[in-house]
Computed example of a mutant assay.
Amino acid sequence: MAIKEPSDARSRRDQALTACCVAAAAESDPMLPPTRRASMLMDCLSVLRSAHPVDRAAQIDMRTFRNGLREPLGALLPTAGATADQFDAMRLFDAHGLVRDAVEDLCREHLVPHVALKQHWSWARVHAEQEERRLYEILRRLPPEDYRRARSLLGEHPAGPVKTLRREWDRLWMRFDFFEAVSDWPWCQLDGWWYPCPECHWPMRVLRHKTTVEVRCEAHAAFGVHYRYVPGSGRDQPAPLVATGKRAKPVQGLPASTEHLALTRPVWRYGTLPTLMELHLRNEVAGLPHLHVEMWLGKLRPDEYDLHITAAAPGQRKRTWRVDAKAWESVPALGTALLERSAPNFPLTIVLPDHQKGERHYLAARLRGRRTSVTTCSRLIKSVRTACGVPR
C-alpha cells in the first residue's frame, strides 16, 4: 500500500516551503527595488504564518522569518505528519550567502494551486507543471517522426544563436514558443557574455563572491561542471574560464544578446534534462546483444513513458522496462505529482539521476501498489547489461 500523508498537512507544508523559497529569491535578487523586496517578504510572511497554527504563527515575526531563511528550514516549516522529508535540514543559501540554484525549481515544484494562494499573493508565479503540460500538449499533436525529432532537439539544442536554432529546428521552429533572449537573463551574464554548459548546452549561472567569480551549471555542478573566471580580457572577447571541476570541459563564451536564445527554465528542467537522461541510457546500452530499444514512440501519452527496452538473452527470462526519466529537484514533490496521476495499467520504471540515489527508496515506498518501480540511471544500465548476459 502506498504511503499516504495527511493532505491538509502536506499542503500547508508545501505552502510554507513555497513562501520560504520565494522569500529567499527576493532576498538574493540585487536588481529588486527595496520597496518591492519588502512587499514580497511581507506577502511571504503572511503565507508562512497561515500555514501554521495560530499560536505558532504569532511567534514568527519578520526578523525570525529572515533569520530562519539562512538556517535549516525545519524551524520555519510546519510538520507534515509522521513522515519526514529532507527539507527540515535544507538550507536555501550556500556557504557564501548566495541563494542555492535549486530554490527556483523547488518553488515551482511545491507551488500549491493558485486558487489556494490568491488570498495571500496578488502576484503570480509560473507553475512548472503547467509549462510542462503545455509543452507536451504541443508535442503530442505532432506526427511520430516530428515528435521524435522535437524530443531530440530539446536535448541537443536548448540554447544558442537564433540562426543556428532556426536551422536545427527547421520546420518545427514555428511550433515552439518556449525560447527567451539570453539578454533578458542577467544571472548568466559575465561582462556581456554567457557560457553554455558542456553537458546540457544551457546557460550556466554566474556567481560573484567577494574575491572570485564562479560559473557553474545548475544541473551538472554536482558532477564537476564548474569554473572560475580569470579577469584580464577586454569586453570585445569572452572572459577566459578556468576549469575547477572534473567534467568542466573547455567552453566558448557567446554574446548575451537578443540574437542568442535559450529554452525557458521549466522546459529545460522538465524537458531537456530528462531527454538527456534518456539519450544517455540509450547510448550506454546501444549495441548490447539480444536487446531492443525504442524511444519516443509518439503513440502513447508523453507523460506515460519514453523509452521501451526489451532484453531476451537465450536461457534467461525476458525482461522489459518502460522507462520514464525524471529530473525534478525535489523527489517528494515528484512523488506527489505522480500520485495525482492515474496509476499506470502496465509496469512502469521511474528513473532518477544518480545523485538522487539516496531518495530512491522513499519514492518507491510512496508509489507502492501502483505497478511502479524506481531506480537510477546507473542501476538501470547494470540491470539491462545483466539481462543481456553481459558482465557489469
Rank of each mutant, 00 (worst) to 15 (best):
D85R: 10
R148S: 11
P158K: 00
A38V: 14
K299G: 05
W173Q: 10
D85V: 02
H355T: 01
Q237R: 10
G192T: 03
G232A: 07
E71N: 12
N283H: 12
E131G: 02
F93W: 06
R125K: 11
W328N: 00
I138V: 15
C44N: 11
T349I: 15
W123V: 11
K210V: 05
P238F: 02
P238H: 03
L279C: 06
W121D: 10
L139P: 00
E132P: 08
T164Y: 05
L352Q: 05
L17Q: 14
P203N: 02
T244P: 12
S383N: 12
R12F: 04
H220E: 05
Q252I: 14
H280N: 06
L338H: 01
G335E: 00
A116Q: 15
K382I: 00
D177K: 11
A313R: 11
R208L: 05
L380E: 04
T83Y: 08
A325V: 03
F65H: 15
P143H: 09
S378H: 08
V293R: 06
R360N: 06
P240T: 01
V206D: 10
L76F: 01
H220N: 04
Y305S: 07
P144A: 08
D184S: 14
E156V: 15
Q189R: 06
L190A: 10
Q119C: 09
A75K: 14
A222S: 15
R140Q: 08
H96M: 12
W194R: 01
T349N: 01
G287S: 10
A89N: 09
K118H: 15
R247N: 14
A312E: 11
V242D: 12
V351Q: 06
L207G: 06
D170S: 14
D177T: 08
T376C: 14
R37E: 04
V206Q: 03
Y227A: 09
L254W: 08
P161V: 03
D236F: 10
C21S: 13
V182A: 05
P274W: 02
T320C: 12
D43S: 10
L352T: 00
P250Q: 00
P344N: 03
A262E: 13
H280W: 10
D61I: 04
A128L: 07
G160M: 05
H220L: 10
G160E: 12
V374T: 09
R36I: 04
W296Q: 07
T310E: 08
E131L: 03
P302T: 03
T211S: 13
A239Q: 13
E218P: 08
L367P: 07
L165K: 00
E278L: 11
P332D: 01
E168W: 02
Y362W: 06
W296E: 05
V331N: 01
T164A: 15
W123D: 09
T275N: 15
M40P: 03
V331H: 04
T164H: 07
V225G: 04
